[in-house]
Simulated scan of single mutants.
Amino acid sequence: MYKHLLIATDGSELSTKGLDHGLELAKQLGARVTIVTVTDMWASGALAAAGPATIAEYEESMRDAVKDILAEAERFATQSGVPHETLHIPNRYAADAIVETAQEIGADLIVMASHGRRGFRKMLLGSQTTEVLTTSTVPVLVVR
């Protein structure tokens, strides 16, 4: 069935549920996983006016956060016994990066979490999951 899952995470409690679910599915299927986290570029541009020290501090903070997110994800994957690799995609819009990466690595399933917002809140807040669902040619499993 599925042989290579891409699991997207941002380190939040909700995305950790998606990670756990994806790892359990991969274990049952004997599949391997690529765990992906994406950092957006919009904040870097907003900080440009603040000066080089602030940009450097921001970038260092983002590197530390990504390191922690992927270390925790790797720990979960190792404990579950699932063959895995981790990947950080910097300076990209998350939905685009997830869809493109799934295609590039030959993933046959994307696993990610969603808050399940509806109506006006969804319109205001947007949803990376919705974007992935509407643009991906790879099947997507959404965990709530």
Rank of each mutant, 00 (worst) to 15 (best):
Met1His: 11
Tyr2Lys: 10
Tyr2Gln: 07
His4Gln: 12
His4Phe: 10
Leu5Trp: 08
Leu6Met: 09
Ile7Ser: 06
Ala8Tyr: 06
Thr9Ser: 04
Gly11Lys: 04
Gly11Gln: 06
Ser12Gly: 11
Ser12Glu: 12
Glu13Ala: 13
Glu13Tyr: 01
Ser15Ile: 09
Ser15Gln: 08
Ser15Tyr: 04
Ser15Ala: 15
Thr16Lys: 10
Thr16Arg: 12
Gly18Asp: 09
Gly18Met: 11
Gly18Gln: 09
Gly18Arg: 05
Leu19Val: 13
Leu19Lys: 00
His21Glu: 14
His21Ser: 15
Gly22Trp: 05
Gly22Ser: 10
Gly22Phe: 12
Leu23Cys: 09
Leu23Ile: 13
Glu24Asn: 12
Leu25Ser: 03
Leu25Gln: 07
Ala26Val: 14
Gly30Ser: 05
Gly30Gln: 10
Gly30Val: 11
Ala31Phe: 10
Ala31Asp: 08
Val33Gly: 03
Ile35Asn: 05
Val36Thr: 08
Val36Asn: 05
Val36Met: 10
Thr39Pro: 08
Asp40Thr: 06
Met41Pro: 05
Trp42Val: 10
Ala43Lys: 05
Ala43Tyr: 10
Ser44Glu: 13
Ala46Met: 15
Ala46Phe: 14
Ala48Arg: 11
Gly51Lys: 08
Gly51His: 06
Thr54His: 09
Ile55Cys: 07
Ile55Val: 15
Ala56Thr: 14
Tyr58Met: 10
Glu60Asn: 15
Ser61Tyr: 04
Arg63Phe: 07
Asp64Phe: 01
Asp64Ala: 12
Asp64Glu: 14
Lys67Thr: 15
Ala71Met: 05
Ala73Lys: 04
Ala73Trp: 00
Ala73Glu: 07
Arg75Ser: 15
Gln79Leu: 15
Gln79Arg: 13
Ser80Cys: 06
Gly81Trp: 06
Gly81Val: 13
His84Ser: 12
His84Leu: 10
Thr86Gly: 10
Thr86Arg: 00
Leu87Met: 13
Leu87Val: 04
His88Ile: 08
His88Met: 07
Asn91Asp: 12
Asn91Thr: 04
Tyr93Gly: 08
Ala94Asp: 02
Ala94Pro: 14
Ala94Asn: 01
Ala95Pro: 03
Asp96Val: 11
Ala97Asp: 04
Val99Ser: 07
Ala102Gly: 13
Ile105Met: 11
Gly106Lys: 09
Ala107Ser: 12
Asp108Asn: 04
Met112Gly: 02
Met112Asp: 01
Met112Ser: 07
Ala113Phe: 01
His115Ser: 09
Gly116Glu: 07
Gly116Phe: 08
Arg117Glu: 11
Arg117Thr: 09
Arg117Val: 15
Gly119Thr: 06
Phe120Asp: 00
Phe120Gln: 00
Arg121Leu: 15
Lys122His: 13
Leu125Met: 14
Gly126Asn: 03
Ser127Tyr: 02
Ser127Arg: 04
Gln128Asp: 04
Thr129Tyr: 02
Thr130Gly: 12
Thr130Lys: 00
Thr130His: 01
Glu131Tyr: 05
Glu131Trp: 04
Glu131Cys: 05
Val132His: 02
Val132Asp: 00
Leu133Thr: 03
Thr134Trp: 01
Thr135Gly: 03
Thr135Cys: 11
Thr135Pro: 00
Thr135Ser: 14
Thr137Tyr: 02
Pro139Asp: 05
Val142Trp: 00
Val142Arg: 00
Val142Ile: 13
